[in-house]
Design a protein around this nucleic acid. Structure first.
Length: 807
RNA sequence: GGGCGUUUAGCUCAGUUGGUUAGAGCAUCUGCCUUACAAGCAGAGGGUCUGCGGUUCGAGUCCGUAAACGCCCACCA
């Protein structure tokens, strides 16, 4: 028997245990088709916020839907614990920088810290009812993952897509590492635009250059003006004298200079920004790099050597002012590129880095993008836009400690890279030795290990390979190439999605997944993204689960359309709470009337029963259509609408028949029983996608034909009740109007109707006559008169029996 | 500056391929303790579907255009 009140906290824990014990979500290859999900391994860097709950729940619902459609679900869970995010977390918790702690000790702390958070993550996601198979979970720093990541690297090297080169790379002098274009975040900052007077060496003519970065004056290698700039083009070919620094550089022409920006005269440094780098390459300019890796001016620069970048900026401005070279200083707000992990402005550094060639294969990546079905479709445009605008090859080396090491040593004598053998992986070049004794190029016998580690994304981008156990004898390559679906939020299309496509293309020449499902964001306030750094979310997932139950949280998470931002709403939670309560109550009611029920073949359904069965069938069609597009929110909305109709209209009609067989007959009662039995079963299945706990509780109590409702299969009805649906809806409308009359008279719905006169078209008249007992009982009708008309229907007369009102 | 999205009731959102009087929840108001449910039930009020123009017998829905808001990118000399 279902209890009077549903105790969510108690039941949810009970079913969690049960699912775990009975391995309900275990993945085992069998004859069924596999539906595989490439879920984002969350970055283990602190707390899970409501945004995680939102997007992971949506993926989870897709898994449950496909399971109910008979697929064998491959649904692993990963933790992204390697790389910079983990390092920063540890640095924050320890209050010390990595280099102060020491490489080995620091790595230990990273493992310890990420383990701790992973446990918390796992507990929370479990409590939420995530139907993942925890046996196939992975971590991005485990030996198995490191091996695959290194294997991927070696494969790309052997195919010529990965190269080691001294080249300018984006550099973060807070994190002391190079970074990739995708890790940039634009930020608006306040700075000054400084107008500085220069002179030509030849004739002492003054001209002005406006710059936001006067500290780069010692790095100037030349000055550019646009050849079409009538005011300045006579300067071309002359020599500019740099004030304060006292050096001379050539004045050159380039069309890229914007005549109307600043003064129209530009100083070119190596490296101030991307244009500088372009010019450096185009005109083969000398290299004059003046920053140290930790953000100071190099000692070789007179006066300013050793100063921090910002200090030097101040000092140079002061010196320029003293010399009378400053024309004016404007306050300026502009956008700068910052490192998304720390928020500090990025610089450029020149050193040997490992790059993956992406510039030369844009067309291939676009082609793969076209082969994948995007949900919602418009997210595809974001991907294409990103690919089209890529300006740099993907720099995958990071000058950090905690991550996947490169399986590489260098010959001390000639610098030739020596790669590890595939069968020796995973290797740590700092500890392990290369398998060869001497350099194949110069016969040198001493080797230097690669100190750098790989970018986090270099590993995250191989999650499909991790899932398929790439390189292992026993693997899932056959069933996971490609995987069925990738799911993530829109912010990492340019990183995770793109890089995964890059890797998949280079390794296998094919798409990594058939589908990609992009979720939106949870907004804290209107137009404000929830983020850990802002701390603007007061919705604590664990607290919410305890207060409302996982099913209710899932109701909120499952609302809304794919790719659309939603805001956290207490109101939606309340609505979910009411819905779940209703499911419980109607199940109790149905259980009550099924005490003597035996399921057997039966075709003699009452008219109203045909109506609701047909209506359900139609609803489920739409429900399935939405879910096949992965629109879980719209599917739920659709289902919910039917469910309230079922409760408020159908149950109100059928209850009389169920309660009083002596009045209605045993067969009509059985018809009602069979109908509620059938529909509740199907409703529970459909709802189980969203509410795995309460549906399991009711299913186990009432049906129990499988070990779990989550192992049942949705089998759509195949009835032909189109007429009954149409006329049934009209009957409901008439009932509703009659109830309205009672409401308007401020009387109870139990008030009987002394006389009701209806005018109905022929078809509807016949329908009501077939459902006459139900119809009369529902409205408490004493006398009913029906006239036949050609079209439509009207209530001609309704006379309430008000005598029994008082009591 | 480029790409994409959003704009529907006081609030939060649905509205399949263009087709009767545009829907739901919350809020407001009026009633009803009806043998599952008062965490409920039955009703009522509330909308020039962001503006303008077009296609069509017919537009919330299609096309063009403008605005506001949001996301991503670029510019950053």
């Amino acid at each position: 028997m279902l209890e009077k009140k549903y105790n969510a906290q108690e039941k949810e824990n009970k079913w969690l245990e049960y699912w775990k014990k009975n391995k309900i979500y275990e993945f085992k290859p069998d004859e069924r088709k596999v539906f595989s999900i490439d879920t984002p391994p969350p970055t283990v860097n602190g707390k899970i916020h409501i945004g995680h709950i939102f997007s992971y729940s949506q993926t989870e619902m897709v898994a449950r839907y496909k399971r109910l459609r008979g697929y064998n679900i491959f649904y692993p869970f990963g933790f992204d614990d390697n790389g910079l995010p983990s390092e920063r977390l540890v640095e924050k918790e320890q209050g010390k920088k990595a280099h102060e702690i020491g490489r080995e000790e620091f790595a230990k702390l990273c493992y310890k810290t990420t383990d701790k958070y992973e446990e918390e993550f796992q507990t929370l996601f479990s409590k939420l009812g995530v139907s993942t198979d925890w046996n196939i979970h992975y971590k991005t720093v485990s030996p198995a993952t490191i091996k695959i990541s290194q294997l991927s690297f070696l494969d790309l090297v052997s195919k010529g897509h990965c190269y080691h080169k001294e080249s300018p790379a984006l550099w973060c002098n807070e994190c002391l590492t190079s970074i990739a274009q995708a890790e940039l975040e634009t930020k608006t900052i306040k700075t000054t635009f400084n107008y500085i007077n220069f002179k030509t060496v030849e004739d002492g003519e003054e001209f002005t250059i406006a710059t936001t970065r006067p500290e780069l004056l010692p790095a100037i290698v030349c000055v550019f003006v646009n050849p079409d700039d009538e005011v300045h083009n006579h300067l071309i070919g002359k020599t500019a004298h740099i004030p304060v620094i006292n050096e001379d550089v050539p004045i050159m022409a380039d069309e890229k200079v914007a005549i109307d920006k600043g003064t129209g005269v530009v100083m070119c440094c190596t490296f101030g920004d991307q244009t500088d780098i372009e010019w450096w390459k185009k005109y083969n300019l000398p290299l004059k790099y003046i920053f140290t890796n930790d953000g100071r001016i190099i000692d070789e620069v007179p006066t300013y050597g050793g100063m921090k970048i910002k200090e030097a900026r101040k000092q140079i401005i002061a010196d320029l002012q003293n010399g009378g070279y400053v024309v004016k200083i404007e306050e300026l707000e502009h956008e700068v590129q910052t490192h998304e992990r720390c928020g500090k402005e990025v610089e450029y550094a020149v050193m040997k880095q490992w790059f993956i060639d992406i510039i030369n294969h844009k067309a291939d990546f676009l082609k793969i993008g076209n082969e994948i079905k995007w949900h919602p479709a418009h997210m595809h445009a974001r991907y294409d836009e990103w690919v089209n605008n890529i300006a740099w090859d993907w720099c995958i080396s990071r000058q950090r400690y905690f991550g996947v090491p490169f399986p590489v040593w260098y010959c001390q004598k000639c610098g030739e890279p020596i790669f590890a053998k595939k069968e020796d992986l995973p290797v740590n070049p700092l500890v392990d030795k290369p398998s060869i004794q001497q350099c194949p190029k110069c016969q040198g016998k001493e080797f230097i290990p690669e100190n750098d580690i790989m970018d986090t994304w270099a590993t995250s981008s191989v999650t499909p390979l991790i899932n398929m156990r790439y390189g292992e004898k026993e693997n899932y390559e056959k069933i996971l190439k490609p995987m069925s679906i990738r799911t993530n939020a829109s912010d990492i299309i340019r990183t995770w999605d793109f890089y995964t496509i890059v890797k998949s293309f280079y390794h296998f020449g094919q798409r990594p997944w058939d589908n990609i499902m992009i979720s939106g964001f949870v907004m804290a306030n209107k137009g404000e993204k929830i983020s850990k750094s802002k701390g603007n979310s007061n919705a604590e997932p664990m607290q919410l689960i305890n207060e409302y139950s996982a099913d209710v949280i899932r109701y909120w998470a499952g609302s809304g359309r794919l790719g659309t931002d939603i805001s956290f709403s207490e109101e939606t939670l309340l609505r979910g709470k009411k819905l779940i309560n209703k499911i419980w109550n109607v199940s109790k009611f149905i259980e009550m009337h099924l005490a003597d029920y035996e399921d057997k073949t039966f075709n003699d359904f009452e008219y109203i029963d045909k109506w609701i069965l047909g209506t359900f069938q139609e609803m489920e069609k739409g429900f399935i259509k939405y879910l096949d597009e992965f629109e879980v929110g719209l599917a739920l909305n659709h289902l919910e609408k039917f469910f309230w109709n079922f409760c408020d209209n159908y149950i109100e009609i059928v209850k009389h028949r169920l309660y009083r067989p002596e009045e209605f007959g045993e067969i009509p009662r059985y018809s009602g029983q069979k109908t509620v039995y059938t529909i509740l079963y199907k409703l529970l299945q459909d709802f189980s996608i969203f509410f795995p706990f309460i549906t399991e509780e009711i299913y186990q109590e009432l049906y129990h034909d499988e070990k779990s409702i989550h192992l049942t299969e949705i089998k759509p009805l195949k009835l032909d009740f189109a007429k009954e649906i149409e006329n049934g809806n009209d009957i409901i409308d008439i009932i509703s109007q009659a109830r309205g009359e009672k409401s308007n008279k401020n009387v109870s719905l139990k008030t009987s109707i002394k006389n009701l006169t209806l005018s109905l078209n022929k078809e509807l008249k016949e329908a009501i006559e077939l459902a006459i007992k139900d119809f009369k009982a529902t409205l408490f009708i004493e006398n009913l008169n029906i006239n036949e008309i050609n079209d439509g229907y009207t209530i001609d007369k309704i006379e309430l029996n008000l005598d029994i009102k008082e009591k």
